Simulated assay, not measured.
Amino acid sequence: MGKRLGGDRGQVSIEFLGMTPLIVLTLVLMWQCVLVGYAYTLAGNAADEGVRAGTAAHRGGERQAACAAAGMKHLSGAWKGGASVKCSPSGYVTADVDLKVPVLFPGSIDFPVTVHGHAGAVEEVKD
């Protein structure tokens, strides 16, 4: 019986090279899921901060402006590009924040998916 030339030498390297694209794709998808979750967290926090500022401000347009400014203040520059903050200043103050989900890096291109954050609080009465 003759001996096989080379045997299994190098088989692990070939298998690793074959699996590398699958490993990279899995890591990219996991990172994208992290960005979606982070976008939800940012939208919720911005809505909470907007409502907090809106309930503490005085009446009418000032309340709405304070709410929108506080909502945008708590978003970093890369996330502000696709963000919108809408506030309703009547008795029960609400803030709705919409953020675009970025593809791989904030500040680059965005998915056509929008993440929504909502918060509400009762108006503070000042004596």
Rank of each mutant, 00 (worst) to 15 (best):
F105V: 11
E49D: 13
G61E: 10
G117Y: 08
K73D: 15
E49N: 13
R52S: 04
T41N: 15
V122R: 11
Q64V: 12
G117S: 08
A68Q: 13
R4W: 04
V103C: 12
K80Y: 04
G117Q: 01
A46Q: 01
A78D: 04
K100T: 10
A57L: 01
V28A: 10
V97W: 03
V125G: 15
G10Y: 05
S76D: 09
V36R: 10
P112H: 02
G107E: 03
G81F: 02
V51K: 09
L22W: 13
E123C: 10
A66L: 06
G37A: 07
E123T: 09
H58R: 14
D8A: 14
H58N: 15
G82W: 01
E62V: 07
S13D: 08
M30P: 07
M72P: 06
T114E: 06
G44W: 08
W79Q: 00
T94K: 06
G44L: 02
V97D: 06
R59F: 13
V113Q: 13
S88L: 11
V12L: 14
V36G: 03
G18A: 10
A119K: 04
G7A: 11
L35K: 04
E124G: 06
G18S: 08
Q11M: 14
M72W: 05
G6I: 06
K86R: 10
L25V: 12
V51N: 02
A70I: 02
M19G: 15
A56F: 02
G54F: 05
R52D: 06
A119N: 12
S88F: 05
P21Q: 03
C87D: 06
H116K: 14
H58G: 15
V103N: 03
L27S: 08
I23R: 00
G71F: 02
H74S: 12
A43L: 03
F16E: 11
L42W: 01
A39Y: 07
H118V: 01
H58S: 14
V36H: 04
D96A: 12
D48E: 12
V12G: 10
L17N: 05
L27I: 03
F16I: 11
A70F: 02
A70R: 00
L104M: 03
G81K: 11
L27Q: 03
T114I: 07
G2K: 14
G107W: 00
C87W: 07
G107I: 05
S13Q: 13
